[in-house]
């Protein structure tokens, strides 16, 4: 066990000196922050104007329809609307403004601390999987690309401790990256919540509990780790970073498309999809706003337990196959053939 931790420590020593992981982290961080501040900007704009409605043209006011702020409409509808606007249009616009004002409370929650973490988890579940797939393939495949597997193995570390150490380091990096972007998101959310105008009273459709957020964090973390494990195992089997990356990410994108296309012809294919890795990873990583929804059946008809079991089976199975093959495989250069 101590050898695994030693390898893990020195793999981190090596990784932190590369630019690639910091670039990937920066991308994840940037997208997370963009989504939070984008939500803030959208809310601030809507809150300042009380919403916006599209005023249709009338016979006396031809031309193009124009946007009008709800605040202006409320203060002096007569000066904003064309004189020949029908009462139905006026009523409709007033109702639209009411709906928009009522949604401000929900829109505020999108970037408030709990909401900002939710947004970040969504970014991690989508973009993060791709970034971690790249990282995992790169970390596992680098030794093949550079030919450094020979000097590593001749140091007497042992193949399986080396592999386990690499995986442990990837687990640590994934966890740290997720915690970091979530913490940054919570910080940004708190700041945005302070500087944003307070939301008017209204229904909060995005009532996020911290406990459901915790469950979602764990599920997203599990989904990311499963994909990291799978991408690493595939890279180890094919002995190439580029090929491992291409297969992992290609499958990540392609599984859903393929299932959708095939299920047009065969209904039962969709059921098969419930046992394929990516659908289950997506299910695991999808966010639910309350505990009951977080652990129960989702839109695909897959429960969180089902998704966890399928994802774990694929991750453990692939990692075990890769480890067995790696343990027995020759590390050769030229064979004189």
């Amino acid at each position: 066990m101590s050898r695994i931790f030693t390898v893990c420590r020195w793999e981190w020593f090596k990784l932190q000196r590369r630019r690639m992981p910091w670039i990937l982290l920066a991308i994840l961080f940037a997208f997370s922050q963009l989504s939070i501040w984008g939500g803030y900007a959208s809310y601030a704009f809507a809150a300042a104007r009380g919403g916006q409605v599209l005023v249709p043209t009338t016979p006396t006011n031809p031309g193009r329809p124009r946007m009008v702020s709800c605040n202006a409409l409320e203060q002096d509808a007569g000066s904003v609307l064309p004189a020949d606007s029908s009462p139905q249009v006026v009523t409709s616009l007033a109702m639209q403004c009411q709906v928009q004002k009522a949604s401000l409370a929900t829109r505020y929650q999108v970037f408030a601390p709990a909401g900002s973490v939710t947004l970040t988890l969504s970014v991690a579940a989508g973009l993060g999987i791709i970034l971690l797939g790249i990282l995992s393939a790169s970390v596992v495949g680098i030794e093949y690309g550079l030919g450094t597997l020979r000097p590593i193995l001749t140091r007497g570390t042992g193949r399986l401790p080396w592999l386990a150490g690499k995986y442990l380091m990837l687990v640590g990096v994934t966890t740290a990256a997720l915690l970091l972007v979530c913490a940054a998101a919570a910080g940004s959310g708190a700041l945005a919540g302070k500087i944003a105008p307070p939301p008017p009273d209204g229904p909060n459709l995005l009532a996020i509990s911290w406990s459901s957020l915790g469950i979602s964090f764990v599920k997203t973390w599990g989904a990311l780790l499963a994909f990291v494990t799978m991408a690493g195992a595939v890279t180890l089997l094919v002995r190439s970073t580029a090929v491992g990356m291409a297969i992992s990410l290609g499958y990540y994108i392609g599984e859903g498309i393929l299932i959708r296309l095939l299920s047009i012809a065969f209904d039962w294919i969709d059921k098969v999809g419930n046992y394929l890795p990516m659908r289950n990873i997506s299910t695991l990583a999808s966010f639910r706003t309350n505990i009951a929804a977080a652990v129960n059946i989702n839109a695909n008809g897959i429960s969180a337990l089902h998704a966890s079991l399928v994802v774990a089976a694929y991750a453990i199975g692939l990692a075990a196959i890769a480890a067995v093959v790696f343990r027995r495989r020759d590390v050769v250069g030229a064979v004189g053939s």
């Binding site: 550079l146 030919g147 450094t148 020979r150 000097p151």
Partner: peptide, 9 residues
């Protein structure tokens, strides 16, 4: 063994 292989960065 063979050519010296190390981490370029």
């Amino acid at each position: 063994v063979e050519s010296p292989a190390f981490y370029p960065d």
